[in-house]
Design a binder for these strands. Structure first.
Length: 198
DNA sequence: CTTTGGATCGTCT
DNA sequence: GACGATCCAAAGG
């Protein structure tokens, strides 16, 4: 998994994002092309905040915005190019009760994860998760519990493939909520899915 | 259903 | 010292 995020975006659709007991299927992403993309946080070079994006693919870049929101990206490499895919929406699969506790404002299930900051709130993804290796396998101990946490599953973020293939014809359009390079059609989503944002 | 305005703080200049 | 890759509540059709 390394290359142009626009090429990788359709592949990321229908993959599964997990944190602890909370699970969702990725139904909407946006590509950011690092140093050649004025809308990318990495456009003006490497800073402490964006350093994860300059690393290898498969890691999680979490940033804070608008004074109150966290957003999560999958770094797509290749190393040094700072390409990333912003996860914009999930279809909740498991842990809906926990998600609702984290997001009391959600009226229906589809309000839980239909936005980049909402899904971070629902899955409890914060700056503490920045730099997580999304493809690392959780380490099981002989007793069946997970290493480093005696009281259950490790609450680390992981990206999984549950066998659902990407959509054959993903919808594609302009990115949302940016002020520059807004005409680039680098947003991809699962056509017709009710959890897509907006 | 759509539109509008306000909140709030980590990061970089 | 300014600015967001946003969300939500309230108000209007």
């Amino acid at each position: 998994m390394a290359g142009d995020p626009v090429d990788i975006a359709p592949w990321l659709l229908n993959k599964v994002l997990v944190k602890g007991d909370r699970v969702g299927r990725i139904v909407e992403v946006e590509a950011y092309k690092g140093s050649i993309d004025p809308a990318s946080h990495a456009f003006r070079g490497k800073t402490p905040r964006t350093s994860v994006m300059f690393g290898p693919a498969g890691f999680l870049y979490v940033y804070f915005t608008y004074g109150m929101h966290w957003c999560a990206n999958v770094v797509t490499g290749p190393e040094g190019q700072a390409s990333a895919l912003l996860i914009r929406a999930l279809a909740p699969l498991r842990g809906v009760d926990e998600m609702r506790q984290a997001r009391v404002a959600a009226r229906r299930d589809r309000d839980l994860c239909n936005g980049p900051a909402k899904l971070c709130q629902a899955l409890d993804i914060t700056g503490a998760d920045n730099g997580t290796d999304l493809l690392a396998r959780p380490k099981a101990t002989p007793s069946g519990t997970l290493a480093g946490n005696p009281s259950g599953p490790v609450a680390a973020v992981r990206l999984l493939d549950d066998g659902t293939p990407p959509p054959e014809h993903p919808a594609q359009g302009k990115r949302i909520g940016i002020r520059v390079a807004k005409d680039e059609p680098w947003r991809f989503w699962v056509a017709g899915d009710e959890n897509v944002s907006r």
